[in-house]
Amino acid sequence: MKRWLARWGGTVLFAALFAPAVLAANAFDVYRDPSCGCCSAWVSYMRAQGYAVTVHQDQPMTAVKARFGVPSGAMSCHTAVIDGYVIEGHVPAEDIHRLLAERPDARGLAAPGMPMGSPGMEMGAHERYDVVLIGRDGSTRVYATHGPAA
């Protein structure tokens, strides 16, 4: 019995101490207009990727974007926040995984506009699009490129 407690007690203690941090790093707050269907599709996509998503639909979106420092050239339809980073628009989960693993000194990521073929925008012909890293100073640079080759 003592061996079992020694072996599993440490595991339980580790899980109790670190599970809240893991869950917090996996939780999104998404701000969106209630009438936007593609925002709902992106939320469903992120949930399917294993993220916990809380949706806020009562915020004026221009105020949300200003509060999180989204530059006008990077704006899209919805704004999300995860682990201190802003995620603007239809950013693929793989880019968010990379962001959270690399932890750059930045505001976050954006898929400017509403690119066809991005998560939540799968209808119609898919287009090539960039996901940009938003710097602390509001500057942007290409972080990843998606879609068919040009």
Rank of each mutant, 00 (worst) to 15 (best):
A48T: 03
H78E: 02
V91N: 04
V64M: 14
A24F: 10
A19I: 07
T79A: 06
L99N: 08
A21D: 11
V91I: 05
L23P: 08
V81W: 04
N26C: 14
V30I: 03
A110D: 07
R107N: 01
E102I: 03
P71L: 01
A48R: 12
M116F: 14
V30E: 03
F18M: 07
L23I: 10
V30S: 10
L23D: 11
G120R: 10
T79D: 02
A6D: 08
P92H: 01
Q57Y: 02
M121R: 07
L100C: 04
L99D: 04
G108P: 00
L99S: 01
Q59E: 15
M75F: 06
S139Q: 14
G69T: 13
A93Y: 05
R67Q: 10
G124R: 14
I82R: 07
L13M: 08
C77E: 10
E88R: 07
S72Q: 12
P119K: 07
F18Q: 01
R98N: 01
G108C: 03
R32Y: 05
G50W: 04
G9V: 06
H146L: 11
Y129W: 11
G117M: 07
A66M: 15
P112S: 14
V43Y: 04
A16V: 11
A80D: 09
A125L: 08
A66C: 10
L109M: 05
Y51T: 09
D33I: 14
Y45A: 04
T62D: 15
A74D: 00
I87M: 04
V131N: 13
C36M: 04
S118M: 05
L13C: 12
A111H: 06
V86S: 05
R136S: 14
Q59H: 14
A48Q: 15
F14Y: 15
V55H: 00
A16D: 10
D29C: 03
Q57C: 11
V22A: 13
M116V: 11
S72M: 14
H146C: 09
G138C: 14
G117R: 09
S44Y: 10
D105L: 15
R7A: 15
S76P: 11
H56Q: 10
L13E: 13
P60G: 07
D33V: 03
A66W: 09
V53L: 00
A110T: 02
G117F: 12
T140F: 14
K65N: 11
V91F: 12
A25N: 12
D105W: 08
M116G: 15
V81S: 12
V53P: 00
A21K: 15
D95K: 06
S76H: 14
Y31M: 05
A41W: 02
Y45D: 07
N26D: 15
L99C: 12
D137R: 06
S72F: 09
R107P: 06
M116Y: 13
M121Y: 02
G135R: 15
C36R: 08
I134V: 13
M75N: 06
R136G: 13
L133W: 04
L13R: 12
L99A: 09
R7E: 14
S72K: 08
P104Q: 08
G50K: 07
M123T: 12
K65R: 13
G117I: 05
P104C: 08
V142T: 10
F68I: 02
A52L: 13
H97F: 12
P34V: 06
D95V: 00
G138K: 11
D29A: 05
T79K: 01
L13V: 06
L23N: 15
A74L: 01
T145I: 02
A25H: 08
A106S: 12
A52M: 13
D29N: 11
A80Y: 07
I134D: 12
G113A: 08
